[in-house]
């Protein structure tokens, strides 16, 4: 089977999934798709440009806030575009500040920038409602149906994932990989490293914003938790669990983490502890991602090394 054919088969299988699931589990599957998009947008930077960000939860959640707040005044499709645009602008701002650094400094800087967004959402109560958050009114008409929303998210997600795939396979994406391996060499070859990284950051932010806009539809509620650090960490862990640099592995990572959350919530309310332990274990045991780890154990394929 060619890559295109197996991708089409995968999407078809996902499209048929709601017929086998209850409405509740269709909701869970929708959430997995949305977070897989967030994790993919992180992987564009972490896996292909070699810059690991910890601010994508904030970019994602900014879009969610803008969609829910502006949908009171303008039609929903426009509100979603406004959300994606806001995410892109925020990513541009963050990118201008962060792209000159790399490694752990980049991570730290993006973390601090993301925390500012969280602080603003928490304190600016007149607009964001503070800790109480804002309730939306988006799930009306056919959107109220869980299956219809799932198919909408799947359709949008397929287009977005294909766009990300094209991006990382394009000459632009190849340049990014060159920058990941050796920024100084790419600079010497005449590539404008900072501009490429900035463009990659903005593209990644737009994709994260699209995921955040879909999340506004799904959740119909937004609070500072949506832009908080755990959201950024969870997205990054999904990308890592799926294997950084694999792009579509993020879907497996998202399914794993959200499935785990659903599973442990039946036994305990201590999800942050479970998430923290998952992060610790993942870093020690399988930083190359679970798919890569399984492959390495079977000896069938070379591990990509994962996050360093």
């Amino acid at each position: 089977m060619t890559a295109a054919a197996s991708a089409a088969a995968g999407v078809l299988a996902l499209a048929l999934l709601p017929f086998a699931l209850s409405a509740f589990h269709v909701g869970v599957a929708t959430e997995i798709l949305i977070f897989a998009l967030l994790a993919m947008s992180i992987d564009v930077l972490a896996g292909f440009a070699g810059r690991t960000p910890l601010c994508h939860g904030a970019i994602f959640g900014t879009s969610t806030y803008v969609v829910i707040l502006s949908a009171h005044a303008i039609p929903l499709p426009l509100a979603m575009l406004a959300g994606i645009g806001a995410a892109g602008l925020l990513a541009l701002l963050f990118g201008v500040i962060a792209v000159r650094t790399s490694g752990v400094y980049f991570l730290l800087l993006t973390l601090a920038l993301g925390l500012i967004v969280w602080g603003v959402c928490l304190r600016w109560t007149a607009v964001t409602g503070g800790e109480n958050g804002v309730r939306g009114d988006l799930r009306q008409g056919w959107l109220a149906d869980a299956r219809a929303l799932y198919w909408l998210v799947l359709a949008a997600g397929t287009v977005l994932a294909a766009a990300m795939w094209r991006l990382v396979r394009s000459p632009f994406g190849l340049t990014l990989r060159g920058i990941k391996d050796s920024p100084t060499r790419m600079q010497a070859l005449g590539h404008d490293v900072a501009r490429h990284l900035l463009l990659a950051f903005v593209a990644s932010g737009l994709f994260a914003g699209a995921a955040g806009a879909l999340y506004a539809l799904y959740n119909d509620f937004v609070s500072p938790t949506t832009v908080a650090l755990p959201q950024s960490v969870e997205g990054l862990l999904m990308a890592i669990a799926g294997g950084v640099g694999t792009l579509f592995g993020a879907l497996a990572g998202a399914a794993l983490l959200i499935g785990l959350e659903l599973f442990v919530s039946a036994w305990t309310e201590r999800w942050p502890t479970v998430l923290g332990l998952t992060a610790i274990l993942l870093m020690i045991v399988a930083p190359e991602g679970l798919v890569g780890k399984a492959g390495a154990i079977m000896g069938s394929r070379r591990s990509t090394g994962g996050i360093r």
Binding site: G103, L108, A279, M283
Partner: peptide, 9 residues
Amino acid sequence: LRQVLLTVG
């Protein structure tokens, strides 16, 4: 990066 993410956990 593994160190940082481990301390987040």
